[in-house]
């Protein structure tokens, strides 16, 4: 199934400027309005982030929030995101890739491909680094075409192209047909998670690329490649309830870890036990269980200071 068809896309820039929109029908308009304007409002809301929570967290966590985000303000967090994500689009609109190669890493391995990420699956995904690495593997530069022919060359992992699905919403549907409001920090943390996927930590070498070329499966790539921190690809969980599932980070300071630190900071601003606190707490604990490296070592080991830089081909 070739989904690289030419579809018209809706995207926004981080500054909140629209970059061209097709005339949507009512249903589409509602969906587009819901996910992209909700995103914009979520990012804008960072300006009112209360620094107290992150500061309180850092007092007992070896300053990790500061080390990751460069400060405690919403501007610091927004800058973190802006450095790593340049484009957002509505996932169901798809995208077109040039050259139309089918061998995007991930694509032929665990996931069937990005086409499996539809509106019923994830909240958001960032495939900029994958396309950039695929370009390195194929010795070319791939370009992604977004809304109205906007062409995005994937020349760096920090190109940051994030698709939002229909699950990027304000309310959590419950089993009894009622719903609960999802705290804004939950969605903000999702964007932070995706932003981290734009970091090629420690860069990537030709020998890394050769190993990736030779890998027969995603698992082989993850375990043999020294470059899994380039894009912070998720790994199969080695222990716990999710053992064997592609839902963990083996290294510290991957997307789950960074997202967890943000949430640990902001949850301090919320009344413990309250509805919003419960959702964020559940998210923190789920993330913590996915960081296989171990929380204590991440927080307290000086040897594992978070490296927030991003490099290219070395």
């Amino acid at each position: 199934m070739n989904l690289f068809n030419s579809t018209i896309f809706i995207c926004i820039t981080l500054g909140g400027l629209g970059c061209g929109q097709k005339p949507p029908n009512t249903r589409e308009a509602a969906e587009i309005g819901d996910s992209l304007s909700l995103l914009e409002s979520d990012l804008n809301a960072l300006s009112s982030l209360n620094e107290k929570g992150p500061r309180a967290y850092d007092a007992s966590s070896n300053g990790r929030f500061y080390q990751i985000f460069g400060g405690y303000s919403g501007k610091n967090v927004r800058d973190f995101i802006n450095e790593r994500i340049q484009y957002y689009f509505k996932a169901s609109d798809g995208y077109s890739l040039s050259p139309p190669d089918q061998k995007i890493i991930h694509r032929n391995w665990i996931y069937k491909g990005l086409e499996s990420i539809d509106d019923t699956n994830v909240l958001a995904f960032n495939f900029g680094t994958q396309i950039w690495i695929q370009g390195l593997l194929d010795r070319t530069t791939y370009t992604v075409t977004l809304d109205k022919g906007q062409v995005v060359p994937a020349t760096s992992s920090r190109v940051g192209i994030v698709g939002l699905t229909a699950r990027y919403v304000k309310y959590l549907p419950k089993n009894d047909n009622s719903s609960t409001e999802i705290p804004i920090e939950f969605r903000q943390s999702t964007i932070i998670h995706e932003a981290r996927h734009s970091d090629c930590t420690d860069g990537i070498t030709e020998s890394d690329l050769n190993r990736i070329r030779q890998a027969q499966s995603y698992s082989e790539f993850i375990h043999n490649s020294h470059a899994r921190k380039c894009g912070h690809f998720h790994s199969p969980c080695e222990t716990g309830d999710l053992k064997g599932l592609l839902a963990c980070d083996l290294d510290p300071w991957g997307s789950y870890g960074i997202q967890m630190i943000f949430l640990e900071g902001v949850i301090n601003n919320i009344k413990p036990g309250a509805a919003a606190w419960q959702i964020l707490n559940a998210k923190i604990l789920d993330n913590k269980s996915r960081v296989q490296f171990g929380y204590l070592r991440m927080i307290y080991s000086q040897a594992h200071h978070p490296n927030m830089n991003s490099s290219g081909l070395r």
């Binding site: 959590l172 419950k174 309250a274 419960q278 959702i279």
Partner: peptide
């Protein structure tokens, strides 16, 4: 998440 929402 649903479980957490019910705890609230």
């Amino acid at each position: 998440l649903n479980f957490a929402a019910k705890l609230g």
